[in-house]
């Protein structure tokens, strides 16, 4: 249970996501395993956060709690000051697997959320098309997912996610399965869409990743987690200017951050 003082912090503005002493236990009795052990952090409005850690650190479980797919065994997850009880359109989600609806075309997939919201056809079309163009899928509107390459599928998922205009984006390793070149392209696209959508407020992004490079390149802050049970080990601020460009990767300062996160993750091996 949160104390009255922490309650005051939660309700204040700017704190978009609050994870407050969250525990998660899977199973019961002797087979029970603690996946998350007292996780606390806060994410500000418009921040780009990466969750990184070895497998078993519970980063995806944590993301799914923010998404509303899992509930904490103890503690609380607040989004915009409200406890998370179910999934919702305010938190867009991209998955590692290509999870486009196979029975819908690219157009149909991108329009899915807008259709649920009851937006009129012509407006829906316009919004979807602008996002399809933006991710470079113009001309593929009538293709079905099985006719697309892996990279194109994730572009479509990206467009679907952004077309729905959620304030919070939860990314569950969406770039884990695409090839290296496409991955870097998509990283830049995610950053660009998140960053210079200038007529609106920036979105808050929580990105679960295995890639140290990706976390340093994209994040304002990296939350490094250690495994069994999952705990927050360190929160690292990444100070580089926005928008970041691929040349940044060759800067010594950038590589210093990569090396630091790398050593931190390596240090968990001994436990």
């Amino acid at each position: 249970m949160p104390s009255p003082s922490s309650e005051a912090v939660h309700r204040s503005a700017k704190r978009d996501i609050v994870v407050d002493r969250v525990h998660k236990v899977f199973g019961a009795g002797e087979s029970a395993t603690t996946a998350l052990d007292g996780i606390s952090f806060q994410i500000e409005d418009g921040e780009f956060i990466s969750l990184i850690g070895p497998s078993g650190c519970g980063k995806t479980t944590l993301l799914y709690m923010i998404a509303g797919f899992h509930t904490p065994s103890a503690g609380e997850v607040l989004v915009s000051g409200q406890p998370v009880t179910s999934p919702g359109a305010d938190r867009g989600m991209m998955f590692q697997e290509y999870c486009l609806f196979p029975w819908l075309t690219v157009q149909g997939n991108v329009e899915f959320g807008l259709r649920i919201k009851g937006i009129a056809k012509s407006e829906r079309h316009e919004i979807a098309n602008s996002h399809i163009r933006r991710v470079g899928l113009d001309g593929f509107q009538n293709r079905y997912p099985h006719q697309l390459s892996g990279g194109m599928k994730q572009r479509c998922a990206l467009a679907r996610c952004f077309a729905n205009d959620a304030n919070i984006l939860l990314l569950d390793e969406p770039l884990g399965a695409v090839d290296a070149m496409t991955r870097e392209e998509l990283q830049d696209e995610i950053q660009d869409i998140w960053w210079d959508d200038d007529n609106r407020r920036r979105k808050t992004v929580v990105n679960v990743t295995h890639s140290i490079d990706e976390s340093v390149y994209l994040s304002d802050r990296i939350i490094v987690m250690s495994p069994r049970p999952g705990r927050v080990r360190e929160i690292i601020e990444i100070p580089f200017e926005r928008p970041r460009r691929p040349e940044l990767r060759f800067e010594p300062e950038y590589q210093r951050f990569v090396a630091y996160v790398h050593d931190l993750l390596k240090s968990f091996k001994g436990h």
Binding site: A67, G68, F69, A89, M93, F101, F112, I116, A166
Partner: peptide
């Protein structure tokens, strides 16, 4: 029905009958 598709649909705002008619039945 693939649970990931259900989750994707829920994150796009689908619930209740929309989930059934737009995800479960087509699948």
């Amino acid at each position: 029905v693939d649970q990931v598709l259900m989750r994707a649909a829920m994150s796009l705002g689908a619930k209740g009958s929309a989930l059934i008619f737009r995800v479960v039945l087509p699948a």
